[in-house]
Design a protein around this nucleic acid. Sequence first.
DNA 1: GTTAGCATGTAAGGAGTTACATGATTTT
DNA 2: AAAATCATGTAACTCCTTACATGCTAAC
Lengths: 207, 207
Amino acid sequence: MSTQPRATGRGSASGVLDLALLGLLADAPMHGYQLRVRLGEILGPVRSYSYGSLYPALRRLEQAGLLAVQQPLRDPDEVPLAPRRSRVTYQLTPAGKERLADLLADAGPQSWSDEGFGVHLALFPRTAVQTRLRILEGRRQRLEQRREGLRAALSRTAQRVDDYTAGLHQLALQAYDREVLWLRELIAQEGQKGRVLDPQHGPTARP
Amino acid sequence: MSTQPRATGRGSASGVLDLALLGLLADAPMHGYQLRVRLGEILGPVRSYSYGSLYPALRRLEQAGLLAVQQPLRDPDEVPLAPRRSRVTYQLTPAGKERLADLLADAGPQSWSDEGFGVHLALFPRTAVQTRLRILEGRRQRLEQRREGLRAALSRTAQRVDDYTAGLHQLALQAYDREVLWLRELIAQEGQKGRVLDPQHGPTARP
DNA sequence: GTTAGCATGTAAGGAGTTACATGATTTT
DNA sequence: AAAATCATGTAACTCCTTACATGCTAAC
């Protein structure tokens, strides 16, 4: 059924977390603790990741050759007889940059999901305008779909539910409406940029 | 640190799904497929559960003695030589009703979480007014906490983020505001009921 | 009589948390 | 020098999804 070729990368980086980590490290080398803070900033304080997810992910990315560790020897005189563990700084390798570019170019379902969208949005400065548009469009469609589903459910169950739950669903409905409006604005904005950068602008034919 | 005695029930029903199932079956006996539909209605079309979660959960609840199966022999003449599997209807046992009552009386962190709150709200008609108030209060506090966290993050990162992500966070902030307002209304409403039903209004001892 | 939709189930695995364990640095 | 905070890491576990496999029932 799915037209997607099952894109969850086998050998290496796949999930939302991986994209976020690679994206943040493209700005500047960082260590795990710092990454978690920045992660919290772009995801909002709602959704963060525990260290139990973060550190294994970093190790996985390192072993996949996408990250390199910089063991800090802050004082050049200080010979590290005991192998110091603290403050392991990670940076992108060339392979990591390639992988990041691939992930940034992806505008599949993952990029429309609640989590994936937030991360992709935070990385829009590094994303091609055409890809931005596809992601925003995908997100808009997904939200409108949910909104219609919820509307339908609300009218279907109007007599059955209508007590407390109905209020919550109304709130959700309004939230969808507002996000859709915001998306339309963003899409219009990006569309402008797209046309400026690419005056022929059609991905397909136009007379 | 936590004052909660690690309440995730060892022997039997614990999670949000279990509460939802027991609550729905308190209305009427149902089979799995039906339960999934009703589940989708109360959770909104956003979050549903796959059959891979649903059926194992039902089996678990049954083996814990909280549910009993009603094997349907629709035609009384038809002796079921081959054990018919289709349309297994579940109903609450007395133990199940007890467990449901316990879960409904719980106003802990789980009942304030995004998922748990929706389910508890749908079961408010079966919930004591005092418990309703505690759940609504807990939810309100959690949301206000998130809102403040987000506000703080927004002003802290104003210069760093302020591109695309800031817009998304602004939307989230507004959504929090609206839900908090709605909660305040509900709390006022329930407070009325509470005072009518219990004029002395103390949650602690009263002759 | 065959397709479509209703209905039930299992095995494997992904994604993340909690709880634990430890070390380093800064502040008081 | 004690306390707080920064920082890293692992093992066990929870919860849920995906993909698969199967059977029943109604409609065409």
